[in-house]
């Protein structure tokens, strides 16, 4: 008869991933690649925003894009047309990326000569918030048609991001979207959050967004 005993582990399930994410952040720092994790719900304009961002910054830095989706390669094809280095990751039904999947994506992409990588995470406001990808900074997009109540519904996501882009600002007049209410709700959850209204379609606010990226990369290099 085997003798069983109780062995305490007391370990958070996210701990392994958190450690791995810290490790990946260090690796990226050594390789001088700044990784931005871009999150949002489906249809918020992530890919169009990525295209605009590449356009604004491609003359001054080497840009790579990791496109994460459950299936298809439509986003990667679109982004590849800009000339940026891009790789499509299939999560195979998984609703988020973790640090190890991100590392594999970066290996596949190849970060040699790449200063700035955008990780376009799976369109989802829930799970990606819980899994540290190892990114240097976290960004999210909330688009006007989604409604101004999203910070109330997905507080964790709003609490972990460094910057919030409010996209499709050009159509705000057609929606009951209270910009001030969103700012107040987001700041209540995350007092340090930077909020930039943009329109990836018209290009409004893209300068400010590109400047935010430049400044953050500069700060990161000096750290």
């Amino acid at each position: 008869m085997d003798t069983y005993k109780i062995i305490e582990i007391k370990q958070s399930v996210f701990e392994d991933n958190n450690k791995d994410a810290d490790l990946l952040r260090e690796e990226l720092k050594k390789g001088k690649t700044f990784l931005l994790n871009l999150m949002s719900s489906p249809g918020s304009g992530k890919t169009t925003t990525v295209l605009r961002t590449i356009e604004a910054l491609k003359e001054e830095m080497g840009i790579g894009v990791l496109e994460a989706d459950i299936d298809s390669d439509v986003d990667a094809r679109t982004v590849a047309q800009t000339g940026a280095k891009v790789i499509q990751l299939h999560t195979g039904g998984m609703c988020h990326l973790d640090a190890d999947m991100t590392r594999q994506g970066l290996l596949g992409l190849g970060t040699e000569g790449i200063d700035f990588v955008i990780l376009e995470n799976v369109g989802n406001l829930v799970c990606p918030a819980e899994f540290d990808t190892g990114a240097s900074k976290n960004a999210m997009i909330l688009s006007v048609p989604e409604g101004d109540d999203k910070p109330l519904k997905y507080p964790l996501m709003f609490s972990i991001v460094d910057v919030l882009l409010i996209n499709k600002i050009d159509v705000i007049d057609y929606f009951d979207f209270d910009l001030e209410a969103v700012k107040e709700r987001a700041k209540k959850i995350n007092p340090n959050i930077k909020i930039i209204p943009i329109s990836a379609r018209t290009g409004e606010g893209i300068d400010e967004w590109a400047n935010w990226i430049r400044t953050e990369i500069k700060k990161w290099k000096q750290e």
Binding site: T3, Y4, K5, I6, I7, E8, K10, S12, V13
Partner: peptide, 9 residues
């Protein structure tokens, strides 16, 4: 969300 313990030998 924790792994509290295991009963093992």
């Amino acid at each position: 969300f924790m792994i509290k313990e295991i009963i093992a030998c």
